[in-house]
Design a binder for these strands. Sequence first.
DNA 1: GAGTTTGAAACT
DNA 2: CAGTTTCAAACTC
Length: 316
Amino acid sequence: MTIPQRQSSDLSLLRMVPPLPQQYMSPASLPMIRPNPAYLPPGCLISPASINSNFGYNILPAHYFSQFHQKPCPLFPDNSSFTNESCSNGQSEMPFFGFAGTVWDSKSKKPCNCTKSQCLKLYCDCFANGDICSNCKCINCCNNVEHETDRFKAIKTCLDRNPEAFRPKIGNGKLGEIKGRHNKGCNCKRSGCLKNYCECYEAKIMCSSTCKCIGCKNYEGSPERKTVMTTGCYDDDTSSNLLKHNTPKARCKQNRCPLACITFDVIEATCACLLAQAEEAEKEGYSVYQAEQMILEEFGQCLTQIVQSTLKSGGL
DNA sequence: GAGTTTGAAACT
DNA sequence: CAGTTTCAAACTC
C-alpha cells in the first residue's frame, strides 16, 4: 500500500495531534520550558516534577487537583515559579498540593481495607484512583489530609516509576487507546479471566491482544464467558483445561482474527489513503455524495490490499 | 469471619 | 527485564 503525501487542507476531522507529553524535565542551564496545556490528555493538569525545585513538570490527573484545591489555581504563575502563594490556599506547606479539605463523596467509593501499604501505594484502590481514604477500614492510613506530605511524595514516586500510573486502565479515548480495552492488558493465569481477579473482566470488557493471560476465556464467542454472563458463575475445570495456550494473541491467530494483521501502521496507512481521497474530492470540488463514494472505494481497495498482503505472508 | 487464591504492584 | 515478594481484593468454606 502506498501512502500518499498529505496535502494542505482545511479538512479538520483527521488532523494528527502532537504526541502527548508525559513528563518535562528542563536542565537548570536551560530556560524553563512550559508544557502546553492544550496538548494534555483530557482531565489532566500539570504539576512541578520536584517538590523543591522549579525544574520539570509532571502531569497529574485532574482529580488530584480537585481534591487538593477547592479553588482552581492557575497552572502557571506569571513568573513561572511555583510558590506557596501561587497555588495553595494557605493551608499547605506544599507548593502545589495543599489539601483544601475537599469533602469526599463517600457514596461513590468502595472503602479499602489496606493494612500494610499505608494506602500510599497502588495496591490501595483509593490511592490508585486518586482518592483520599474516607470511611475506609484501613490501618495506618496516610492517604488523608493529615499526611499530605507523605501522600505527595508517594504520588511522585508512583509517577516517577510510571508516568501513566494514574491514568485510567481502560482505554478512554486518548490518542492510540481503544475504548473498552485494557491499556496494559491483564496477566491472568488461573482465573480464565472470568473472575473479578481479572482487571478486564472486572471492567466488564473482553481481553484483547494486549493481554498476556493464559487460558483466557474472556473473549467474544467464548462458551464459558456466555455461561458466566447468563448464570453468573464460572466452573473452572482446571483438569480439563485444554486451553493452556489460549492467549488472546494465540487465539487471534487460530481464529484468524483480523486484529492479527491490522496493526497500528496499517490503520495509519489506511487513514492516510482515505484522507488523500477526501482531499482530492475537495480539491476537485466534488459533491459530498461523490466524495463519500470515492472514500468508500478507496477503503475497499485498502481492505483488498490488506487481505492480499496478509495472505502472501501466511498470516491467514 | 477466617483462610485461601489470585494477579497487580513493588522490589531485587 | 525476568523472577520473586508483597499486598489487598476476590473468593471459598
